[in-house]
Amino acid sequence: MPDISFNIAVLVCAPPMIAGRLTFDETQAGQLFGMAVNGTRIRFDENVF
């Protein structure tokens, strides 16, 4: 993942909790789980609390 980046898409603060949605965007290089994925672009969201 030579070019991975992420942005905070949503950030919610309601003390004592903080929640956010991170949007990741990257291009795979080499292999992933034994499969050739070189050059495949992947975008996904992750929720964190």
Rank of each mutant, 00 (worst) to 15 (best):
Q28S: 14
A29Y: 01
I18G: 04
G39V: 02
T27Y: 00
C13H: 13
I42A: 06
M17V: 06
Q28A: 15
L32F: 02
V48S: 14
I8Q: 12
R21G: 06
D45N: 08
A9V: 07
G39H: 01
D45E: 15
L32H: 11
R43K: 13
F49C: 09
M35R: 04
V10S: 11
M1T: 14
M35N: 03
P2F: 05
C13E: 15
L22R: 09
Q28K: 07
P16E: 06
M35T: 00
L11Y: 12
P2H: 09
L32G: 05
D3A: 08
A36N: 15
T27F: 03
N38G: 02
D3V: 06
V37I: 04
E26N: 14
L11R: 12
G30S: 05
N38R: 00
A9M: 03
T40W: 00
Q31T: 11
L32C: 05
A29W: 00
L22N: 11
S5C: 11
I8L: 09
R21M: 10
L11G: 07
A9K: 13
F24K: 02
F6C: 13
D3P: 08
N7A: 12
I18V: 14
M35C: 06
T40Q: 03
I8K: 06
I8A: 12
D3Y: 10
R43E: 09
A19M: 14
T27W: 01
R21P: 03
I18A: 14
E26P: 03
E46F: 04
S5Q: 15
R41M: 02
R43G: 10
V10T: 14
G39P: 00
F24P: 01
E46P: 01
V12M: 09
G30M: 04
P2I: 00
D45K: 05
A29L: 07
A14I: 05
M17Y: 10
P16I: 00
F49I: 07
S5G: 15
T40G: 00
A19G: 14
V12S: 15
I42H: 14
D25R: 11
M17E: 15
G30V: 04
F49Q: 08
F49N: 15
E46C: 05
G39A: 02
N7L: 10
V48Q: 05
M1K: 14
V48F: 10
E46N: 05
F44S: 12
V37M: 04
F44L: 05
D3E: 12
L11K: 09
Q28T: 04
A29E: 11
G20A: 13
N47H: 08
E46H: 12
Q31N: 07
M35W: 00
P16D: 06
I4C: 11
I4F: 05
M1H: 11
L32D: 04
F24Q: 10
G20S: 15
V37W: 00
F24M: 05
L22C: 10
T27C: 05
Q28V: 01
